[in-house]
C-alpha cells in the first residue's frame, strides 16, 4: 500500500490504465474463446509453434525419469507379463484364422455387389510432446502439424481406439482435443443393440441393429453417452464406434464399451491414455476437387423470373 501511495500521479494513472486494459482484453479473449471464435486461431497456431519445442526440451528430463520408473516397474512383473503374452498369442492365432476367413468372404461379396468403398485414409504417426496437466482441459500437443498434412478435424487414434480429434494446427505441431474433454462431442453408434418397434415391411429397419448417440466429454475418465435414441436397449459391454454423422469422423472406428449404471450411460474408452506417447493421425486422402461443371441451385420461381426477364430483354432488343 505504501508503495502505491509513494508513486507519482502519472505512475498511478499508468498502473490503472494497464489494469483496465488487462481486464478488457481478458474479458474480450474469454468471450471469443468461449464461443470458439476462429479469429483466435492464428494466436493458437503461433503459440503451438513457439511452445512445442520449448516444452519438448524442458520435458525431456521428466520423460526420461518417467520412462525409467515405468521400465523398472515393468521389469518386476516380467514373468507375469510373459505368461499373459503367451496366452494372448494363442488366442490371437485363433482370431487370425477367423479374420482370414472373413477377409476372403468379404472380398467375394464386394466383387459380387460391385461395392464402392469409402474414401481411403492415410495416416501419420506423431509423438505427444505436451499435455494439459490441469483438471480443466484434456488436450495433448503432438509434434506434427501442417507440414505433415495434419489439418483441424483429423482423427487421432492409438493402438486401442479413438483418442480425439485435431482442433488446432501449427506449422510443426498440432493440438488434439481428447474424447474426455468438456468440449468434446462425438457422434457414435452402439453396436448390437436391437431397435424395438420394427416395421415388419421395412427390411432396412430390421437389418439396422445400431443405436445412434453422442459421446459427451465431462472431464471424467469415462465420457457420457447421451442423446441415445433407444435407451432401453443399451446394456453394459456393448461396443461403441464412431459414426460418420457430421462428416468429421470416418464410420466404424472403435471408441470403447458401454458402462451403464441405471439411467447414466458412460463409455469405457478403448484408447490407453495411461501411456499415450504416440498417436496415429488419420489423413483424409479423398479427392475433393470439383471435376465437373458446377450446377447452380436456384429456386424454380427465381429461374422462371430470370427466364421471363431474359425474354423481356430479348423482345426489347
Amino acid at each position: 500500500m505504501a508503495q502505491y501511495r509513494s508513486r507519482s500521479g502519472m505512475g498511478q494513472i499508468f498502473s490503472r490504465a494497464a489494469l483496465a486494459i488487462a481486464l478488457v482484453v481478458g474479458v474480450l479473449v474469454y468471450v471469443l474463446g468461449a464461443s470458439s471464435d476462429p479469429r483466435l486461431e492464428p494466436l493458437r497456431r503461433i503459440a503451438l509453434d513457439i511452445s512445442t519445442p520449448v516444452v519438448s526440451v524442458v520435458g525431456a528430463p521428466f520423460r526420461f525419469v518417467r520412462d525409467r520408473l515405468s521400465g523398472f516397474g515393468g521389469s518386476l512383473d516380467v514373468y507375469e507379463q510373459n505368461r499373459a503374452l503367451r496366452e494372448d498369442i494363442v488366442q490371437l492365432n485363433q482370431w487370425r484364422e477367423v479374420a482370414r476367413r472373413f477377409e476372403e468372404e468379404n472380398a467375394r461379396l464386394r466383387a459380387l455387389h460391385n461395392v464402392a468403398l469409402a474414401p481411403k485414409y492415410d495416416y501419420v504417426t506423431a509423438q505427444v510432446v505436451a499435455a494439459s496437466g490441469g483438471g480443466f482441459a484434456h488436450a495433448v500437443t503432438i509434434n506434427v502439424g501442417r507440414d505433415g498434412s495434419v489439418e483441424p478435424g483429423a482423427v487421432a487414434l492409438d493402438g486401442g481406439g479413438v483418442v480425439g480429434r485435431v482442433i488446432s494446427t501449427g506449422r510443426s505441431a498440432a493440438r488434439i482435443l481428447l474424447l474426455t474433454d468438456l468440449a468434446s462431442r462425438v457422434p457414435v453408434y452402439i453396436e448390437g443393440a436391437e431397435t424395438p418397434e420394427k416395421d415388419e415391411d421395412d427390411d432396412e429397419d430390421r437389418e439396422e441393429k445400431i443405436v445412434r448417440a453422442i459421446l459427451v466429454g465431462d472431464n471424467e475418465n469415462a465420457p457420457l453417452v447421451e442423446f441415445v435414441n433407444e435407451i432401453d436397449d443399451i446394456e453394459s459391454g456393448r461396443r461403441i464406434f464412431t459414426s460418420s454423422d457430421g462428416g468429421i469422423f470416418p464410420k466404424g472406428l472403435p471408441v470403447g464399451e458401454i458402462e451403464r449404471e441405471g439411467d447414466e450411460i458412460r463409455a469405457r474408452l478403448a484408447a490407453n491414455f495411461d501411456r499415450l506417447e504416440f498417436v496415429r493421425i488419420l489423413l483424409d486422402r479423398s479427392d475433393r476437387s470439383i471435376d465437373a461443371d458446377a450446377v447452380l441451385i436456384v429456386s424454380p420461381n427465381r429461374q422462371r423470373g430470370e427466364g421471363e426477364a431474359d425474354a423481356d430483354a430479348g423482345s426489347t432488343e
Binding site: 511452445s51 520449448v54 516444452v55 524442458v58 520435458g59 521428466f62 520423460r63 518417467r66 505427444v128 510432446v129 505436451a130 499435455a131 494439459s132 496437466g133 490441469g134 484434456h138 495433448v140 500437443t141 481428447l178 474424447l179 474426455t180 474433454d181 471424467e220 475418465n221 469415462a222 474408452l269 491414455f273 495411461d274 499415450l276
Partner: peptide
C-alpha cells in the same frame, strides 16, 4: 509454464 505442460500421463489418466 513448460513444466506444467509436460505429459506425465494424459487426459483422464494424467
Amino acid at each position: 509454464l513448460s513444466i506444467s505442460a509436460v505429459p506425465i500421463g494424459v487426459g483422464p489418466d494424467a
